[in-house]
Amino acid sequence: MHLIPCPCCGPRAEDEFHYRGDATVKRPAPDAGEQAFYDFVYTRANPRGWHVEWWHHYAGCRQWVKVERNTMTHEIRTAVGPAEDIPEVQV
């Protein structure tokens, strides 16, 4: 079971969170057109290695936490609040 460093609550067990997928996609502007929304909803890179993901802390502070996690090793490097960006790190 992962230990997720919630930026509000500190390290918490994974079962307090719902995994909510790719956090690198951004919802487009309302007039961005169908293709942009299509990419937002469906197009995923599915990387092997470092990835930025949403983990919703439903049984804690109820924040959509942005977590940088290695999909291969399960290592977690950073976690920030919903409106923050994870600084670019050279992998």
Partner: peptide
């Protein structure tokens, strides 16, 4: 009830903060 609250939190926290 749970998914709707979470859905609202997603839009309020990440899309229209």
């Amino acid at each position: 009830a749970g998914p709707v609250l979470e859905h609202m939190e997603f839009y309020a926290q990440t899309v229209w903060p």
